[in-house]
Write a protein that binds this DNA or RNA. Sequence first.
DNA 1: CGCGCTCTTGATCTTCGTCAACGTGAGTGG
DNA 2: CCACTCACGTTGACGAAGATCAAGAGCGCG
Lengths: 230, 230
Amino acid sequence: MNSDCENCTLSYRCVPSAISSKELFRFTNIVSTNELYQPHDKLFEQSTKADHLYVVKSGSFKTSIQGSTNNPHVNGFFLPGELIGMESMAGNNYLSSSTAIESSLACKINYRQLGALRKDFPLLSDLSVKLYSQALALSQSILSCVSKQSAAQRLACFILILMERTKQLNRRVSEVYLNMSRQDIASHLGLAVETVSRSFSKLIKHGYIKKNNRHIYITDSKQLQFFSTH
Amino acid sequence: MNSDCENCTLSYRCVPSAISSKELFRFTNIVSTNELYQPHDKLFEQSTKADHLYVVKSGSFKTSIQGSTNNPHVNGFFLPGELIGMESMAGNNYLSSSTAIESSLACKINYRQLGALRKDFPLLSDLSVKLYSQALALSQSILSCVSKQSAAQRLACFILILMERTKQLNRRVSEVYLNMSRQDIASHLGLAVETVSRSFSKLIKHGYIKKNNRHIYITDSKQLQFFSTH
DNA sequence: CGCGCTCTTGATCTTCGTCAACGTGAGTGG
DNA sequence: CCACTCACGTTGACGAAGATCAAGAGCGCG
């Protein structure tokens, strides 16, 4: 695949936004764009050497942490334009494994080479800080989502966060497609699969959402918002 | 207070570690060091203009998010050497309020001025990325802590994370002092205060920890670790 | 059509939130 | 010095919410 970053629809929130088109070749030289991953394909494995950052081009990914005894915990979902592997940059090894949820494209950037590029482009340094700051903000909003007491509140909050993130992709605001399985949602929110199902039913019965399989239609986002914050 | 960053015991994990001592004045010119905060004093208020980053010098702080209706949710604790306000750097306003838990000292750095400094010191750019990466890793380990199903597991995990963080301050490994109230812990973990108390009792009965008020002694960290991961 | 997988619904038991009472320690004032 | 208050923490009793086990429904796919 060639590195056509200049015409990428996501370049405005990626590295190219911090580099003049004249010098863009310096980035396209170090990035592997549009690598294809099928469902269950892995970007990287937990505890292996961390050396690459990934940008989701299309589709979606999840990251999960595997303890020694227990079943893995899904600690993040990643939509187009989002970065995977940011939290592993400080250490030597990846802190989680990353898996494609559906047929997806991702771009691959070497940490070290990106670091070198940052020295020559001050704007890239600013962008890094901005993207990290946003990632931290997202992580904390998910934290406050998961720490809500009622299961239905957690799910409502989860849907709203997903809605905010898809909104940035120029998608329809009142509609969310859940690429991930109920099992993944359950693991992410610290619930049993059955409880997730029941919580969906509860949100539907309240008239906040409608759903068709993994398609969620938000019929009353005001009320859903209110409900999620108790 | 004067800005004696050169002799600060935490400088190795702060901005000065990325700047030669000859040029350190450029940083000490823009930082307000060792500002004193009493319990309940606020570093900043949610939704006000975000313009400063804070470094905890001594004592401890918490951040909390206030919704429109519900009681505030404690979404972070901060120990000496840790940064407060990182997640608000990308937006205009602070996403949470920050409060001193005990009598504490903090250093205050302006975002914009720090950004300017980053352009002149490439090492500072690297440090920023490293610190953000670590903050993100911490945030995710807390997320997987809070998403555990059992209350006692959450508490065990919380204690272990706190232990790891105090370990970096050359404190005794087997001992943790909880500067925060039970109410704050409960809010942070998404539990009721009474459940936190009962979970402490459970961990004690199992023989994993002992405690005296807010002093926690880890008597069997191996077992505590195992218990927390189920 | 039948098989496997995901999702949903129902029944039961466990856990946690809530309400209440009690214990403890610090600060206050008689 | 003691009685008092107040904030914080613990413990008990009870009802509500969720985990678990079990069964059934919906859907894609060979």
